[in-house]
Design a protein around this nucleic acid. Structure first.
Lengths: 164, 164
DNA sequence: CTATTGGTTCGGAAAAATCAGAACTAAATG
DNA sequence: CATTTAGTTCTGATTTTTCCGAACCAATAG
């Protein structure tokens, strides 16, 4: 099996998958390329060539990937080129993002539960429709438990990173 | 505080949040409306009116929401109207989707690890660049642990649903 | 000080997603 | 069987996203 071909295929497959995470097609291909290239890093020019993309496109997406803590770069002494790599904390950052999203969701569903309780209070007088709170309760349980699990893993990984 | 206003606000807020999950703006508003309306259900016409949307748009998005197991409807004897509600198993379905996505991701990263190991074997001969496998290992750990946590919760919820 | 390298920024073209209107259909109603 | 109700389907307009080329800039090299 030709490793070059395999590489191209994996970039596409991983790229398509990563598009699922709010990334433009080319941004996803860039991230996939970096994941597959590891710590040796990939230069701007290599990205433009390997992905057959415009410089402006690569520049914009690299910017975005850096702003969202997915990508960084290092430089070599005496060279002006940047070697782009995935952020060493990518996994932690992904977990952090999940936790933030879930926290936002939690607050929202608490607001909704309050709204429904309030509404039930009013409706009790008029004999009107009463909301069921089961969905909100279950959803909040779901959010709490998954958050706790991810939080624990995050703490554990963090400890391991610090110890090494 | 006016509950009608509060309702509108929550639909918007929840709607915006739900757009984050690959839903078109109007699809997100529909789902938000259903979440806020609970088990009494919302008819097609009410959705068209409350959301100021075209019938075709509502029809298409409702279709999609049903196909992705987020929405169902019930009918009342003698009436032709449909009362749309969130799928009673929405939470389980969401968990199921998370698990599927993570499983796909797991397989992909195993492929990538294999590619890197293979590549290292080749490179060992030529003295070429060696891949680090740490990222893949950590990512797989992350996937395994979060999957297990969600799987457990799913089982637990499922048991509780069956028992009631 | 001129040329080259390694990018960035700006303006718009091309493509994709989203939505709406009009015509249509199938079931029930009168 | 004509009408109303409850939607569906098709076509195209509008909006948004994605991408590119050209001009530009700052740092280094010659």
């Amino acid at each position: 099996m030709d490793l070059g071909i395999e590489r191209k295929n994996l970039i596409e497959e991983l790229g398509v998958h990563l598009e699922g995470d709010h990334l433009a097609p080319l941004a996803a291909r860039i991230l996939a390329t970096l994941i597959l290239s590891g710590k040796k890093g990939v230069t701007f020019e290599e990205l433009v060539n390997e992905l057959n993309a415009g410089k402006s496109t690569v520049s914009t997406h690299l910017d975005h990937l850096q702003n969202t803590n997915r990508v960084t770069y290092f430089t070599k002494p005496g060279e002006r080129k940047r070697y782009f790599i995935i952020d060493p904390n990518l996994i932690l950052n992904v977990m952090e993002e999940m936790l933030n999203k879930w926290e936002k969701e939690r607050k929202l569903h608490i607001k909704i539960r309050n709204y429904k309780e309030e509404s039930n209070l009013q409706a009790a007088k008029t004999g009107d429709f009463q909301f069921d709170l089961e969905f909100q309760e279950d959803y909040l349980t779901f959010l709490n438990e998954t958050s706790t699990a991810v939080q624990k893993l995050k703490t554990r990984l963090l400890a391991r990173y610090n110890e090494n």
